[in-house]
């Protein structure tokens, strides 16, 4: 209801920098409008802390419309908080009760070291993309966009995978800190589209090799990633990634790798 306010308590992970010791600090924020987003509530906390001469809680955020993938936060034990299919920036305070204590942590994974407080280093994702998350073409000299017909269902399936925002919730939720859902989203998008087929073998191998070398764990099909993914990306894409990998690993050359 508009105009309603609540008081909340927060337990937030504070850590001065990478490799430095960290601990939970407690805070109280009063008169929180239920119409505020979770990040706006943190803005209010930070303004209060700054005015008291304390260092604000650092967290990643940017677009605040659920698409840039910058915001993270483990809220009450769940990546992006208790609601389904949204990012932290789309979580509103009406989700919480008056007097509730909310625990806020950064993503926890050895491949995502903490930079400060709630900010983590996700550049491992960059290197996975760089290993093969593209079609090797240059600008110009490409065929007309309508030259290849792609069945609508195929385009839709590619789009389902392509919606990944690279936030890392899948890694944070996984007991193995696996980034298979993230990796699968890109591999799957390009595996189903005709444009991506020429490089299927090398893409699957290179991206998975990079995934493993970054220190992400293996997938044991628990489905925690799918449950917390703000874009609701299905683990069937991981199944496709596994097929892509198996096929790539057992095929000798790309010569008979035509469909």
């Amino acid at each position: 209801m508009a105009g309603e306010t609540i008081n909340i308590k927060l337990k937030i992970w504070r850590q001065a920098g990478q490799g430095k010791p960290g601990k939970f600090e407690s805070y109280e924020v009063n008169d929180v409008s239920v119409d505020m987003s979770f990040l706006e509530m943190l803005d209010v906390l930070n303004e209060n802390e700054l005015k008291k001469g304390n260092d604000p809680v650092h967290f990643d955020h940017d677009c605040r419309e659920g698409i840039c993938g910058m915001c993270s936060l483990y809220i009450n034990g769940k990546p992006h908080g208790p609601k389904h299919g949204i990012t932290t920036c789309q979580l509103h305070m009406r989700t919480f009760k008056n007097g509730e204590t909310i625990v806020v942590e950064p993503w926890r994974a050895s491949a995502f070291p903490v930079l400060k407080d709630l900010m983590v280093d996700r550049t491992a994702f960059e290197r996975i993309q760089q290993a093969g998350g593209y079609v090797t073409i240059s600008t110009g000299g490409v065929p007309d966009a309508n030259e290849i017909a792609i069945p609508k269902t195929v385009a839709d399936e590619a789009m389902d995978a392509a919606q990944c925002i690279g936030c890392g919730a899948c890694v944070a939720a996984c007991k193995n800190a696996s980034a298979m859902l993230f990796t699968a989203a890109k591999v799957s998008q390009l595996a189903v589209l005709p444009q991506g087929k020429a490089e299927r073998k090398r893409r699957a191998l290179a991206m998975l090799e990079q995934h493993d070398s970054e220190g992400f764990g293996a997938c044991t099909n628990t489905g925690a990633c799918e449950a917390v993914c703000p874009k609701e990306i299905s683990i069937t894409h991981i199944a496709r990634l596994n097929r892509e990998f198996t096929r790539a690993a057992f095929s000798g050359s790309e010569t008979d790798y035509t469909n």
């Binding site: 079609v135 065929p143 290849i148 017909a149 069945p151 609508k152």
Partner: peptide
């Protein structure tokens, strides 16, 4: 017009009709 060609070649999944065209 070249932009659309380029993006499709990269694998951008634009919306399509049932006939498979954009």
């Amino acid at each position: 017009t070249e932009i659309i060609d380029q993006c499709v070649a990269q694998g951008v999944p634009f919306a399509r009709d049932y006939g498979g065209l954009l």
